[in-house]
Design a binder for these strands. Structure first.
Length: 263
DNA sequence: ACGTGCTCCTGTGTGC
DNA sequence: TGCACACAGGAGCACG
């Protein structure tokens, strides 16, 4: 379920469970999870190393390997890291397993849309994938510049990892809701007030969720995310929420509280 | 250079 | 209860 806050939560989890432990085995339990690499390539690069440092860029996690290079980790839609000590506690859908002297770190991923790979450095990976800057590193001026260079629906711009990296379907809905902006609003139609609110709300929403450990159920009831399902009502005005398809993804918003822009 | 839609995968919830 | 089918918080790619 990983957007930026979840991946940051996973990074901290791995920091607290799995660093500086010699990796005895690194095994792809399913070949798809390391695509387009060969399972062997990853095992060879990782076994005998330890994770030295962690780094996150948008929804991507990087772990520096003591023998050189970095592990890359993308969580797809259903991936999560699980540390455990006894094999009988191995999670279901274990797709990649790191084995330490005392314990294991599994990549559990039901849908297998996640990926594990290796790269020379996070910078190299970001360049290869043409990822935009991590959204939390953006200044307001950077953010505004990105919006001004873009066209199309505001929500699509927020979610485009090549423009800015880290925001997905759910948090874009939330930031737009809190900013009173219709997800379909063309970015060119946003006023400077809209852009300013959007910048602050994107950051606020992501930070708040990180504080809550990426657990949506711990976000305030005033958030759209707590009401993001069919038939629910806007937490602000009580009106019916609308759900539409935008770029193949489901968007929820309040047609009363969210406008096409111009402030 | 762009936006749209298809595709990769499997598990779960919904409605008949 | 059982089954079929839509749908899911992501992203790369082909196509127009």
């Amino acid at each position: 379920m990983p957007e930026l806050p979840e991946v940051e939560t996973y990074r901290r989890y791995i920091e607290s469970t799995s660093m500086h432990r010699p990796i005895m085995r690194a095994e792809a339990k399913h070949p798809l999870i390391v695509r387009p690499f060969q399972a062997r390539t990853i095992s060879t690069a990782v076994e005998g190393s330890a994770f030295l440092r962690s780094y996150r860029h948008g929804k991507n996690l990087f772990l520096e390997l003591s023998r050189g290079g970095w592990l890359t980790w993308h969580f797809g839609m259903t991936g999560e890291p699980v540390f455990f000590e006894r094999m009988r506690d191995e999670p279901p859908h274990d797709r990649f397993l790191f084995t330490f002297e005392n314990g294991h770190l599994a990549f559990s991923d039901a849908r297998m849309l996640g990926r594990i790979g290796v790269t020379a450095s996070p910078d190299e990976y970001v360049r290869e994938k043409k990822l935009g800057p991590d959204v939390l590193t953006l200044t307001e001026a950077d953010f505004t510049r990105i919006l001004e260079r873009s066209r199309g629906a505001a929500k699509m711009v927020l979610m485009d990892q090549h423009k800015m990296s880290g925001v997905g379907n759910l948090y874009s809905d939330e930031a737009l809701f809190q900013s009173g902006i219709d997800p379909r609003a063309p970015v060119q139609c946003l006023g400077s007030g809209d852009k300013e609110r959007l910048y602050h709300n994107v950051r606020k929403v992501l930070r708040r969720s990180i504080e809550r450990g990426g657990d949506l159920s711990r976000l305030p009831q005033t958030y759209l995310l707590r009401h993001r399902s069919r038939g629910e009502r806007c937490p602000r005005c009580g009106g019916d929420l609308l759900s539409i398809h935008l770029g193949g993804r489901t968007s929820y918003f309040c047609p009363h509280c969210q406008r096409e822009g111009g402030t």
